[in-house]
Design a binder for these strands. Structure first.
Lengths: 347, 347
DNA sequence: TTGAAAGCGCTAACAG
DNA sequence: CTGTTAGCGCTTTCAA
């Protein structure tokens, strides 16, 4: 009778803790404890159970254990975009530490949409994940959903695109400083009319890089106005970018995100704008191709992998000691300017 | 008394179906059915319950419903690599259809490791996901784990890097043809000694692109030997690539994956090999930067987003009618060569 | 060192 | 149309 039960289980491929218990003539709780390496089970019994489990590829039902233990051994990662070298590398960093901890990583894409970010965070509230790592969507300019999330005390760490006004654990780069130094670098190389090219600018969202840009200009008594800002909303804005470049005779440009390198290089080629002779170019970007572009591109490359690692480590710290309501800290990772041909001094 | 129970629930932020039931003085099953929009509940009751649920941001516990219904409303996606434009776009395609279907997407990275792929698939067997979308790791050259997976009857669709020897639902590009045509293109442009640059070659893994390459050479009575194959295992092989290029005087090269474009361009620059005059270059690759490289790069760009969509649609078809054990089909998506400067005729 | 039993939140018979 | 109830597979007291 027991035999036939087991056969049925294997046929249905539904091997559970009970299958093992029956097969080995022990109780389910013994099996459970053995599988969780509890100290109250004898080595002998453990070995027997583990051997059986391994043989039949037992793997616990995550929904059952999640329901019972209120722990999912899963963290949720919300990013605005894949297809972006920076976020890709961050994910790798996160993965590498999650794996060591035996956690699963659930990746969600907000696609820069506030609406979607909202939905995702809402679902997290029901306990699908033990902790959250999030970088905000560009569209996000209101933060009630974030506050609601934090109220639920789900361990959360923000990285890169963070809600400045909210007190929370955050991991960022020294964006203000980088924006400032990037601009200073262009100025040092002789630029006097510098554009700042950004992607889908939102007035409401604080932009440290841009602040740094503005400060550098002002410090050097260079005028800053809306003219210096080129806001690239989508591929249609290629013409607007083209016009801006031909109208204003910029001699330097800071590209704030890697997606905009291609259109900028394309337009310069088309308009026969010589980089760096006529226009010096510097970009925040992470792809290795920067080193083989013509001219090679001066970049600010973030420690993306490290940011993933740091964020994840910080999150696990919170998950592991939830009562530690210490003052939330903001970790700042440094990144550096890598000078290449596109900002070489020519005049 | 009821009041205080509710207060407690809201304090603990644990709003469940029972909270709602008590608050509204109905039974849990009524609530459950109402939330699932069952026809057996009156509109009036539904409205009442939905209103309450919305007000208090109720969101069902995925572990409870997963356990009970044996459905997780989640699909698992296994890819070998992020930071690769192709897979990034595939993910977007998958996401877009999963979202429409109300499914979650669990993304796993195998990092090209067989070991990791094995672990991931093993965990899927316990029912964490309702279906699986997978592209194999480069290291994978044995397929028992795949067969075991398929035996469990978990709906699975393979894409791009597929197990050729196994009968299953697959979505691919016309790789053999593309390898063939890519090579033919180089030959037409005048190349007579063509290299094939690939990433971590495994003899055991069938490689349709390479087969196409070989066929094109043989058809043209050009000799094919191991010399034509440059196997790039890791960044250290940069020197090997350099040597191969300077020793063998290739006049054409097929790059089989986008990661290798940067090293190739870098080395050509360093060795002052003129593209396309001395060496014509063509790459399988998906990044937009191909259009601004110098010279612009002839590419074979896959319909990556569409591949994600197609795979997902195909998977949901299987999930929705599991008993449909029809003959598994292989969908072939076409992609085209986009000719640019790097393969222009010069001699 | 082991086992019995309760119950996590939800769904789905089945009964009313 | 609504309610009662029995589990899903697992963990975790508590008792033996």
């Amino acid at each position: 009778m027991i035999k036939s039960f087991l056969e049925e289980q294997h046929l249905k491929n539904t091997i559970t803790i009970q299958t093992i218990a029956k097969a080995l003539q022990v109780s389910v709780s013994t099996v459970s404890k053995a599988l969780n390496d509890s100290h109250e089970i004898s080595q002998e019994t453990k070995d027997k159970i583990l051997a059986y489990a391994r043989e039949y590829d037992y793997s616990p039902n995550p929904y059952a254990s999640g329901l019972r233990s209120k722990k999912s051994k899963t963290i949720g990662v919300v990013i605005p975009e894949v297809g972006n070298s920076f976020f890709a590398a961050v994910i790798k960093g996160i993965e590498s530490v999650a794996r060591k901890k035996g956690y699963h990583v659930l990746i969600y894409l907000s696609n820069e949409s506030f609406e979607k970010e909202l939905m995702i965070l809402n679902e997290f509230q029901a306990g699908r994940v033990d902790g959250i790592l999030i970088s905000l969507a560009l569209e996000t300019d209101t933060f009630e959903h974030i506050e609601k999330l934090l109220e639920k005390n789900i361990p959360t760490v923000f990285f890169d695109r963070i809600p400045h006004a909210i007190e929370a654990t955050k991991v960022v780069t020294n964006d203000f400083e980088l924006g400032y130094r990037a601009t200073k670098h262009l100025i040092q190389q002789g630029c006097r009319k510098i554009a700042y090219l950004l992607y889908r600018h939102h007035q409401a969202m604080s932009n440290q890089r841009l602040e740094g840009f503005i400060k550098a200009l002002e410090e050097t008594a260079l005028p800053f106005s809306e003219e210096n800002l080129i806001d690239y909303q989508n591929a249609n804005d290629k013409n607007r970018l083209k016009n801006a470049l031909s109208l204003h005779a910029f001699d330097g440009i800071v590209i704030s995100t890697e997606e905009l390198v291609t259109p900028l290089y394309a337009i310069c080629k088309q308009l026969k704008i010589n980089i760096p002779a006529q226009l010096k170019v510097l970009s925040f970007c992470d792809f290795p191709l920067a080193t083989v572009l013509t001219p090679t591109l001066t970049t600010i490359k973030h420690p993306a992998f490290q940011m993933g690692e740091t964020s994840a480590i910080s999150l696990f710290k919170k998950i592991e000691k939830p009562r530690q309501n210490t003052h939330p800290e903001t970790l700042v990772l440094a990144s550096e300017i890598i000078e290449r041909e596109s900002t070489e001094r020519t005049f």
